[in-house]
Amino acid sequence: MNRDSAVLVFLELGSDNAVLPVSLECITAGRKLADALQGWLFGLIMGSSVGGAADHARHCGLDRLYTLDCPLLGVYHPETYCPAFLRACDETNPHFILMGDTLASADLAPRAAFALDTGLITDCVGFEADRSGVCFIKPVYSSNVMAAYTMKTKPYLVTIRSGTEDPAQRQHDKGAEVVALAVEIGESTLMVEVLERVLDEQEGPRLTSSSIIVSGGRGVGGPEGFAVLRELARVLNAAVGASRPPVDLGWVPPKAQVGQTGEKVGPSVYVAIGISGATQHLAGMSASRTIVAINKDPAANIFKVADYGVVGNQEQVVPAFTEVLKEILP
């Protein structure tokens, strides 16, 4: 093993204190990279009471798992997370650092890159490793063009888009060694003070962690149309998403938006209802494993990327679709 080419994967925890699916995808990417470089694959979990997450992650194919367990890391704050993260980088001296492309990494990754005097490639959907080095691939120009980047500096800091890899699965092995790191974090010196946190009481699964997404577009017709989609989502245990028009029209809250300027998702099934398939929307969901489209316009762009489709008004198609699913799903 080459100690100089260690890959460190930052394993972000969700609100349930479990490792996010996109972070498990990063383990898969990290494993490929570590194998190509003959380097170690390290994981890092930061949070409060991370025992359960660590116990899962250590069986997911890592060579070693580092934990930073501290009550102050229970919620993300840049001024606690960034120093803790740098402490782990110092300890592991990685050549590559991978993290999921999430709201937290949108804040953490550039701060870490700045502090480490290195570059950052965000929102990557793949990499190529050969003798000349490693290139990371990311969509640019609203996903109309792909760019391959390498870096002059070390470590490579990279965020990876959800849906890029299969999530690493728990294996029946003895598990990676877990190393608990200590970090001293003071709350008194924070420059940015949190006054309050307002968490929305969202029903059902979230876009970023759900394996099925039911998404609606302008064709859904209005807030009432979304009620029909919510019923379908309930039956499928799916999250509800939307393209931009329903968000702009106020039918659904902004955080439901999937696309270039919204959430980028890669669930196993994406059900697109009344969505025409504008580039900006496709940019956020084309990593989905299977795309199912229901749209009354047979020429709609969405059918070009879909795997299954029904041409027809969703008002007639969706309730019948939902009824049958209710019967056949366990």
């Binding site: 760019a147 390498t150 002059k152 084309s286 070009k304 029904v310």
Partner: peptide, 19 residues
């Protein structure tokens, strides 16, 4: 700090849409 190696056209997802 980054070096752009190349731009290329994305592979369009070709769903063989089963209607």
């Amino acid at each position: 700090r980054l070096v752009l190696r190349r731009f290329f056209a994305p592979e369009m997802r070709q769903g063989q849409c089963r209607l």
